[in-house]
Amino acid sequence: MADGADRGAARGRRSRPLVEPVPDVPAAVADLGDETGLLVADYHAGIEAGLRYERGVELESAGDERRERLLDLLARTGADRLVVLGDLGHRIGGAGDAETEELEALLSAIGVPVTLALGNHDAGIADSFGDRIDVTGPGGARLGDVGVLHGHTWPAPEVLGADVICMGHEHVAVRLEDAVGGARAEKAWLRGPLALAAFDGEVDLAAAGVEWHDPELVVFPAFNDRSGGTWVNVEGQGFLAPFLPAGLVDAEAYLLDGTRLGAYRDV
């Protein structure tokens, strides 16, 4: 592990942020050290079959459109690796036929290595596609100076030793009102310093030999347009991760086009 001086020097040499959102889409490019990664969260392959089973909602599959959107982003960014921050699939408890078919088509078309930070909807994916995907444990993993996890469990200690930590799970959205009382939901990013106190008694960094470097937490909006969202600026809409909101006291919200909305609680 690099010491503080080495890490500080590395930060000074960087000409770009470690994690930089791609304008107008729920995806980011990340410096993973030896690779450039394209990061997305909550792909939810096969969601239409899941909605039919779970809620009786009939929708045609948008799997082809999702795949083309992702392939276009990989081509545009020139990424060396795709990193999915959990919930690549949708059916909790194992992939159904529609999900398996969509994932098979997606993985056959992707020409770069894929890392999946295991999410709560990803049961069975390692068994079905583990020879084609690098699957982390539930607490995520560290790729260079970037920690990646889904966010449904406590992070692995090595994730908390990163400079920037990226997570999904929350499907971040904000409720925006106009002057005449109309309202709409918009996908959004949350970014802010992660608070160490949120992990007291849950993650033992000292025992794991991990140093704390005051990381920034980046909470991703969902890549899937049909997976809903949590309006983080609406009272009563609680977070899903066990370390939020305690771990993200001073976060700011940003729209996909980069518009800074300020403190998410005040939007």
Rank of each mutant, 00 (worst) to 15 (best):
G144K: 11
G144R: 13
D145P: 07
V146W: 06
V146P: 07
G147W: 09
V148K: 06
G151Q: 10
G151W: 07
H152V: 13
P155W: 13
A156C: 11
P157Q: 12
P157G: 10
E158H: 13
E158A: 13
V159A: 03
A162V: 08
D163L: 15
D163F: 02
I165E: 00
I165D: 02
H169F: 07
H169R: 11
A173H: 05
R175M: 14
E177V: 05
A179Y: 03
A179W: 08
A185L: 12
K187D: 03
L190E: 01
R191V: 10
R191T: 08
P193R: 02
L194V: 02
A195N: 01
L196K: 14
F199R: 03
F199A: 02
D200G: 02
G201V: 01
E202V: 04
E202Q: 15
V203G: 02
L205W: 12
A207W: 01
E211V: 10
E211G: 13
W212I: 04
W212M: 04
E216H: 03
L217P: 03
V219W: 11
V219G: 04
V219C: 12
F220V: 04
F220C: 08
F220D: 07
P221N: 05
F223R: 04
F223P: 01
F223V: 07
F223L: 08
S227I: 11
G229M: 05
T230E: 00
T230L: 13
N233T: 12
N233E: 14
V234S: 02
E235Y: 13
E235W: 10
F243C: 04
F243W: 12
L244P: 06
L244W: 09
A246N: 09
G247K: 06
G247Q: 08
G247I: 12
D250N: 14
D250V: 06
A251P: 02
E252F: 00
E252H: 15
L255H: 05
L255F: 04
D257P: 03
T259N: 10
T259V: 04
R260C: 14
L261K: 07
G262E: 03
A263K: 10
A263Q: 09
Y264E: 01
R265T: 13
